[in-house]
Amino acid sequence: MALYSDKVMEHFRNPRNVGVIEDADGVGEVGNAKCGDIMKMYLKIDNDIITDVKFETFGCGSAIASSSMATELIKGKPVSEAMELTNKAVAEALDGLPDYKMHCSVLAEEAIQSALDDYHKRSGK
């Protein structure tokens, strides 16, 4: 389908890091069902390194692909690096998104940031 890049379709068809982390150190959820997109991110953090990350997403193809790509971009990275993740980086890693789908990458960035905020709150940092 020409709607999306091959990379988007590949991540949509085989999303990485799908699921839940029961004992997560940080959880973030953004979006709302009214708009048609919700992303939830779970982080496992050890020694300031993101050792594991999982996501759940309700949304369109690009929302699922953006979630998947965002988890790949931060997995194994220091928290400080993950905090720098931008929606642009997510979209670029997916070889671009259609203009009207850019908000999906924004949502992915926000979901990660929200999970990191939760981690900081919990750990008192």
Partner: peptide, 14 residues
């Protein structure tokens, strides 16, 4: 309930 239509269409297309 609980899913979004576009992803449903893309997977049905597959």
């Amino acid at each position: 309930e609980g899913i979004e239509g576009e992803s449903l269409l893309l997977l049905l297309d597959d």
